[in-house]
Amino acid sequence: MTADTIYPPKIVVRAATFADIGAALSAGWGDFLATARFGLFFGAFFAFGGIGILAMAWALDLSYLAYPTAVGFSLIGPFAAVGLYEVSRRHGAAQHLVWRDILGVIFAQRRRELGWMAFVTMFMLIMWMYQVRVLLAIFLGFQSFTSFEGFLQVIFTTFDGLMFLGLGHIFGSVLALILYSATVISFPLLLEQEHDFITAMITSFKAVTMSPVVMIGWAAVIGFTLYISMIPAFLGLIVTLPVLGHATWHLYKRLISFEA
């Protein structure tokens, strides 16, 4: 071990309160208003990506997967918000916001630990879609649906359809909670500090388990807001995604500090 070995700073996690949630939302809204051109850009990119995925499902005659695909798409929100974290970080440090620098930081993450978190996020998305297909096979067999309306009729008017819907939401909620717990702190942490992604995920889980009611409450706020925002063809995400992204950065800054 050499004398010039550099260790990352020690991570200190503080318990969250509902006051932290309120302050983070207020600060996130302030960041959105102050840097709207960036927020609207990232929000629109995410929203139109969701529209494209749904259009592809319809084009491939897989319209019955539209709803689970839309819900699953929201799971990659933390990764999509990386640019928003960087905007909030620079805005808070009174640094000049330049498109080239912001996009350059995002592109550079492929060589950093945060890039591994993209695999974690995509793995959970794949698991989400896999459990949907398994439940479809168990409860609805391999029958084909000629239309999305026909699929909805089966789902809401038959016992097997209701079982598929109920268990799908239960399993999906568990996967979403696991992913949320692993990423709510780890993404902004890895953007700011070069820790390994395992340490970042452990820190994120620790932040959630230290204040489970508050942090799960924040997850519920995020989930409900994203769900409502997706109803008007994903277009609500153009505003809500950047506000939530900025707010998540500020919540992270309130909960995490470092010691040399």
Score class of each variant (00 low, 15 high):
P9R: 01
K10R: 14
I11R: 06
R14N: 13
I21N: 00
G22N: 04
A24R: 00
L25H: 02
S26K: 14
S26E: 10
G28V: 03
W29V: 13
G30F: 07
A34Y: 05
A36K: 10
A36V: 07
F38M: 02
G39D: 04
G43I: 02
F46V: 09
F46T: 08
G49K: 00
G50K: 00
G52T: 04
I53D: 03
L54N: 09
M56A: 11
L60A: 09
D61T: 05
L62R: 11
Y64N: 08
P68R: 02
A70Y: 07
F73G: 03
S74E: 14
L75V: 03
G77S: 14
P78I: 01
F79E: 14
A81N: 02
V82C: 10
H91A: 10
Q95A: 11
Q95N: 07
L97P: 01
L103P: 10
V105T: 15
I106Y: 08
F107L: 14
F107H: 15
Q109T: 15
R111C: 11
R112A: 14
E113D: 11
E113G: 13
W116C: 10
T121D: 14
F123A: 15
M127R: 12
W128Y: 07
Y130Q: 11
V132A: 05
V132I: 12
L136F: 15
A137C: 07
A137T: 15
A137P: 06
L140A: 09
L140R: 02
G141L: 03
E149T: 08
L152H: 12
I155M: 12
T158D: 14
D160Q: 09
D160K: 00
G161N: 01
G161W: 00
G166Y: 08
G168V: 08
H169Y: 14
I170N: 01
F171N: 04
V174P: 01
I178D: 06
V184C: 10
S186G: 08
F187T: 14
P188Y: 00
L190G: 07
F197Y: 06
I198A: 05
A200Q: 01
I202N: 14
F205Y: 07
V208Y: 08
T209K: 09
I216D: 03
G217K: 00
I222G: 02
F224T: 15
Y227K: 09
I228Y: 06
S229M: 01
S229D: 06
M230E: 13
L235I: 11
L235V: 11
L235P: 11
V239I: 09
V239W: 01
P242D: 06
P242K: 01
V243N: 01
H246N: 05
T248C: 05
H250M: 04
H250V: 09
Y252G: 15
Y252Q: 08
Y252V: 13
K253F: 03
K253M: 10
R254L: 07
L255M: 09
F258M: 06
